[in-house]
Nucleic acid binder design. Structure first.
Length: 675
DNA sequence: ATGTTTAATCTTTTT
DNA sequence: GATTAAACAT
């Protein structure tokens, strides 16, 4: 076994040391919640470098950008020089994107491909359905995208899709092929292609495979329980015969089954990589025994799991609170009151040490209102983020068409925004000519005689202007060594978008707000280039496409010290002294639709993740009735609440928890007192 | 072609 | 309850 530096050996416990020091061959680290997983990974990388493995040859894959960022920071603090910079640490998808920029040529794409976002995918799928002449009532575009993703992730043929509808099952293969063809025509890849194409190239091309294996000799994967088939296959290919593959994960925290993740990968790792060493991390450094025992009791009801025995020596602490409110509003008020008490009361918690978790995004709304009324600073992770605003997406589309002239989706998005005399009719002609001509980019059609002859003078004129401006700035950006932010701003002005916003919104406040959002995007570009001085527009767009929830944080105040609101999914990997989980009702958590898909165990794992985020105190709240779809719904409490042993919990009603005295009663009481 | 009103459709989780 | 598509009026 390789030497481990004294500094590292002193910083880890016995089982952690095993995981850190065994550098060759397959290794599975089963890391329960709060057992120092990130610590193990970073120390392990430091140990690799300490033992002479070149940092360039280490490939660390994660599922979120945030996890990658965190690891790099911790690594940089640990090892001297710029070695930490040289390790590839990133998401599977960003690795795929980087790999494909080099190699995607063999599949007929060019290296300046763009990544299709959800809106692009939907638009392309709608077009594909239209192209195969199917009545759109028969082929739901969203459902088709779902099927497409499943097919790609399983690397199977569209004929193998599991479709009950006989008509759709007959047409789906054609739709699937047409969808991919449109993507290719536009030099675009969807998210799944980012993984699929890497695997295809590695399987097909022995030389690239050998070269890749030599380049990355030591692989490390975080959150292995979330890998899907493509990701598994990628690891298998890259690991090769040397199989220097270390995967870290916790089967109990597998919560992405709906996205194709297969828990069997972690359950059967030792079968797929015979001779694999297995290290279990069971000592929890995070939570009180009350919280841990509660979480263990809940998760032990699952059948499909590695047995494990998580323990901590952090003391019993407070019991788990279960609070019933009459309505969602009352629940939200209770949450705000609890937080005020935690901050100002004897606990003196800082807002940033408090998290409010929920199963689905829309549940944040009521809570937000209460927090605002109570003037509690908060930040919202994910959900309707800044980047989802219409004006920001429009601005991004303007930039995308600049970078990729074949991106028809972006052109269609911006051609009528702001209104410039090109309306439905002109767009019909544009699409018609596109269909007749084959693969000519729509942007080029704008300048053709046929198009100009088909539409009104006004439309032809502004189409020409639009095409000219785009061409002009495309050249500017292609020259490289451009300061992307100022150029982007100039472009958005000259193309008439910023002025257009004013025309589109008579309400000046709204106009200013939207313009500020667009300028905020420009600002984000400047910051991006500040971090990566040689960055091009394409680089910015890629990082924008691959951004995840943890990159999308909406702050309600400038204060960094704020309460965090997020979904349980977004909370994975994080910890907080005080955690509140809201909407603990049957149907909400566990989620009704998820239950219909038969994934009770995954819902339970999700609840396990929620519980194990808490270090000192866990509060679970529910509302007896709640507004959903605009009508009041009564729901029974979540069955998960009953799965927690009674001796670990205390239950109460929200209205008794914080006695609210309105001013009138107070005055009366005072009067009585003075009298 | 564009602006305004009404109807409809959904909210599970996301790289 | 909020966003988006479709229908209608200017």
């Amino acid at each position: 076994m390789p030497e481990v530096s004294r500094k590292i050996a002193d910083a880890v416990n016995k089982s952690q040391l095993e995981a850190v020091s065994r550098l060759d061959g397959p290794l599975l680290v089963l890391a329960g919640a709060g057992t120092g997983k990130t610590r193990v990974i970073t120390y392990r990388i430091a140990n690799m470098i300490g033992n002479g493995i070149a940092p360039e040859r280490i490939l660390g894959l994660t599922f979120t950008n945030k996890a990658a960022r965190e690891m790099r920071e911790r690594l940089a603090a640990m090892i001297p020089g710029d070695s930490a910079e040289k390790v590839f640490l990133g998401t599977f998808h960003s690795f795929g994107a980087r790999f494909l920029r080099r190699h995607v040529g063999v599949l007929g794409f060019t290296s300046d491909f763009t990544i299709a976002d959800e809106a692009d995918q939907l638009g392309i799928m709608k077009q594909a359905i239209l192209d195969v002449d199917l009545n759109k009532d028969l082929a739901n575009p969203k459902f088709c995208l779902h099927l497409t993703s499943k097919i790609k992730n399983a690397m199977s043929a569209p004929e193998a899709a599991d479709i009950r509808d006989t008509i759709l099952s007959r047409f789906f293969p054609a739709i699937y092929r047409r969808y991919n063809q449109i993507l290719k025509n536009q030099n675009m890849l969807d998210f799944d292609d980012l993984l699929l194409f890497v695997v295809m190239i590695l399987e097909r091309d022995e030389q690239i495979l050998e070269r890749s294996r030599k380049e990355k000799t030591h692989l490390l994967v975080d959150e292995y329980q979330d890998t899907n088939f493509l990701q598994f296959r990628l690891l298998q290919l890259l690991a090769g015969k040397s199989r220097n593959l270390c995967v870290v994960g916790d089967d109990d925290q597998s919560i992405y089954g709906w996205r194709g993740a297969e828990i069997t990968h972690i359950l059967r790792f030792a079968e797929k990589f015979p001779g694999a060493k297995v290290v279990k991390l069971e000592r929890n450094y995070r939570s009180t025994t009350t919280i841990l025992d509660g979480a263990n009791a809940v998760i032990s009801l699952n059948n499909n799991r590695h047995s494990k025995n998580l323990w901590s020596d952090l003391g019993e602490g407070e019991p788990i609170k279960i609070i019933s409110a009459r309505t969602g509003e009352e629940e939200a008020d209770f949450v705000a009151d609890t937080i005020i008490d935690a901050i100002n009361g004897r606990d003196r918690l800082s807002p940033s040490s408090i998290a409010i978790l929920y199963r689905s995004n829309h549940l944040s709304r009521l809570i937000e209102e209460s927090l605002r009324v109570s003037r509690i600073p908060y930040k919202l992770v994910g959900s309707k983020s800044f980047y989802d605003r219409k004006e920001v997406r429009d601005a991004v589309a303007y930039l995308k068409i600049l970078h990729n002239k074949r991106d028809d989706q972006s052109l269609l998005r911006i051609i009528g925004v702001p209104p410039r005399g090109i309306g439905d009719k002109a767009i019909e002609h544009l699409k018609r000519i596109k269909a007749e001509s084959g693969a000519i980019p729509m942007g080029d059609i704008l300048a053709t005689r046929e198009f100009r002859a088909s539409v009104t003078n006004a439309a032809a004129k502004s189409a020409e202007q639009l095409a000219d401006t785009i061409r002009l700035f495309r050249q500017e950006f292609q020259q490289g060594s451009v300061e992307i932010a100022p150029s982007a701003r100039k472009y958005l002005e000259q193309v008439g978008y910023l002025d257009g916003l004013a025309r589109m919104h008579k309400d000046t406040d709204e106009y200013i707000r939207r313009r500020d959002n667009v300028l905020e995007l420009v600002n984000a570009m400047a910051q991006y280039q500040g971090r990566n001085p040689s960055a091009t527009l394409g680089d910015f767009l890629e990082s924008h496409s691959l951004a995840d929830d943890s990159d999308k944080v909406r702050k309600d105040s400038q204060d960094d010290d704020a309460v965090t609101l997020m979904t349980v999914h977004a909370a994975k990997g994080l910890e907080f002294p005080l955690v509140l989980v809201v909407a603990m009702e049957n149907g909400m958590f566990p989620n009704e639709r998820a239950m219909r898909d038969g994934s009770v165990e995954e819902e339970r794992r999700l609840f396990y993740v929620a519980m194990t985020r808490a270090k000192k105190q866990l509060i679970l709240t529910r509302a007896i009735s709640r507004m959903t779809h605009g009508e009041i719904m009564r729901r029974p409490p979540s069955p998960f609440l009953g799965d927690i042993p009674k001796e670990l919990t205390v239950s109460a009603n929200a209205q008794n928890a914080f006695k609210k005295v309105d001013t009138e009663t107070l005055i009366k009481a005072l009067e009585n007192f003075t009298a």
